[in-house]
Amino acid sequence: MANRNKKQPILHISESRRVFKALFKRKIAVISAAVILLTIICAVFAKWVAPYDPYTMDLTNIKAVPSWEHLLGTDALGRDVLSRIIYGSQSALVVAIVSVLIAAISGIILGLLAGYFTKVVGVIIMRFVDTLQSIPMTVLALAIAGLSGGGLVNIVIAIGVSLTSLYARVMRGQVLKVKQSDYILAEKMHGAGNFRIMFLHILPNCIPVLIVTITMQMGSAILMEAGLSFLGIGITPPTPSWGSMVQDGAAVLTTRPLLTIAPGIAIFILVYAFNTFGDALRDALDPRIRNRK
């Protein structure tokens, strides 16, 4: 130990660098990240990626089978299915990412506060969460639609609000558990403030459990959007959405299965990519299993 190099920096590698390194050592993480990235690129550059305008109807060429002109055929109104799927990724991504992030962030903060300050603050928050949970999502979506009209924003808020209570609950449970640990008491013993304890020590020890829920719900949010759109309180018709494409295709499932299967596969791939990425992220965040193969 005497001839140890004293100049050697000891705390050089930052935590986020470690997580990234561990994350991208996993093939599955790289593949799912690539799929998500590709979807994002398609959504952003839909105008250039899509071969046709997704709104142009060609009533002379409806429900066409796949051909070189229309790779995935056309729908009941003669619109190009591939182009609609590419444009549909826009709302799918917004719904999946934005609504779930709204729910996760607000739910996590509410749960963190409720679990840490169990007395007055916690009771008030949990009453509020109970109230939120008691409103069915469709009713909420209807109410928001009544106030601000239908559309994407409506869906994002409705789904976001209705998922919040779940996160708040799960998070609160985690906080109550982690709060009891000696290492949290050690923080208090050394004089750390509430803010430091909550955000630097309790939060990192609670988040990983929630990551799987978050990515799973990104999948279910896309499906919820389909349901709301079907009820007419979601994305309004000409705007392409994967959910409503599946619904529309269902009418002609036996004769033209591709109209349902193609957007269905798009949903499946994106949902699957979110889930596997979430799994890999959770593992990479945990120092105990980070470097395991």
Binding site: I10, L11, D182, Y183, A186, E187, H190, G191, A192, G193, R196, H201, P204, N205, L285, D286, P287, R288
Partner: peptide, 18 residues
């Protein structure tokens, strides 16, 4: 008594920062 998600170095350094 040691935070499983923090390096031991940062655990030891915690009182310094606090």
């Amino acid at each position: 008594s040691l935070d499983p998600r923090k390096t031991v170095g940062s655990t030891v350094g915690e009182p310094l920062i606090i």
